[in-house]
């Protein structure tokens, strides 16, 4: 176990050490990549096309990117630094600053090389995202012996701020009239009441039958198949037990009764009336099991 001060001291030892030595661009500066960049960013500057085209200066860093196949020339020191930060819980990364100087334009055919040095590692800082250390690197990008530009880049390696612990969902309201339903759910069964006089299934649970007034009833286990009858996407106000936006659906069961629930298997914005669903059960915390509806079609 290291104290913060120990860690900071070890991090500071990386200042001045190389992060990349004699890295080379994965591709020479080329028109197709320039064109893709301009297309993505909506940049129609004529300087970036035609026989005398130059690369947009702000592409400087793009030519040094490792892409999916990884960086070239990266030093062990840089990996060690990042590893040390990871081990200290600073597992997340976000780029915060980019300072570029453009000494000469890059043109198609230019083959770049680059050297990166770890300029500075900050003390532990607390930010809105969490607490961590800023790491600043400076990269010199060359074409042959000529400096084409420099690129100073600052990232924050941080431990995401702990989110306040999520309170449990509102509990079902259990009383003598409906306890059987919630006991069924605990046993992963969806139980419907059925009037023994007129055989009408019913939900919500009540001590008597609205169809005939009969007070006697038994239960049947629902098939668990249903369709979305209607739904709501909740945005506001934010309830701490839920993460808005979220969908709440009214499910019409094959047996003809309806009950409310959450739909899984599609994002909140893809819930639609008529979607076929099947019941599953989810434990939300020690005390609460709830039915949940998985989209099946």
């Amino acid at each position: 176990m290291h104290t913060d001060e120990d860690l900071t001291e070890r991090l500071k030892a990386f200042e001045g050490r190389p992060a990349a030595t004699e890295g080379t661009g994965k591709d020479p500066v080329n028109l197709p990549m320039i064109r893709h960049w301009c297309e993505a960013l909506g940049d129609t500057n004529p300087a970036y096309s035609g026989p005398d085209a130059i690369a947009p200066p702000t592409m400087l860093q793009a030519w040094t990117m490792g892409g999916l196949s990884g960086h070239t020339g990266r030093s062990a020191a840089y990996d060690e630094l990042l590893g040390l930060l990871d081990a200290a819980g600073c597992t997340s990364v976000v780029a915060t600053d980019c300072e570029q100087e453009y000494d000469r334009p890059l043109r198609p055919g230019d083959e770049i090389t680059f050297d990166t040095v770890i300029e500075s590692v900050s003390d532990r800082k607390t930010t809105k995202l969490g607490s961590g250390h800023f790491v600043t690197t400076r990269t010199d990008i060359r074409v042959g012996p000529d400096l084409a530009g420099t690129h100073r880049f600052r990232i924050l390696k941080y431990a995401p701020a702990a989110r306040p612990e999520k309170p449990p969902r509102p509990r079902p309201v259990v009383n003598r009239d409906n306890a059987g339903f919630w006991e069924g759910v605990r046993d992963r069964k969806l139980l419907l009441q059925r009037c023994t006089a007129c055989a009408a299934p019913r939900h919500p649970w009540l001590p008597g039958c609205n169809a005939c007034g009969g007070l006697d009833w038994d239960t049947v286990e629902a098939s668990g198949e249903g369709t979305v009858y209607s739904y709501v996407v909740m945005h506001h106000p934010p309830f701490p037990a839920f993460d808005p936006p979220y969908a709440v659906a009214l499910i019409e069961l094959a047996e003809g009764v309806r009950m409310l629930g959450n739909v899984i298997g599609v994002p909140y914005d893809k819930v639609r009336i008529g979607l076929p669903v099947r019941v599953e059960f989810r434990e939300h915390d020690d005390e609460s099991t709830l039915p949940v509806w998985r989209v099946t079609g």
Binding site: D177, P204, L260
Partner: peptide
């Protein structure tokens, strides 16, 4: 909004919707 209800008949009616975030 509501987060909790007594287990009366009125409270139980809301109990069918509250756990799901409505």
């Amino acid at each position: 909004g509501v987060q909790r209800r007594e287990p009366s008949a009125e409270g139980a009616a809301l109990g069918w919707v509250m756990p799901f975030g409505l």
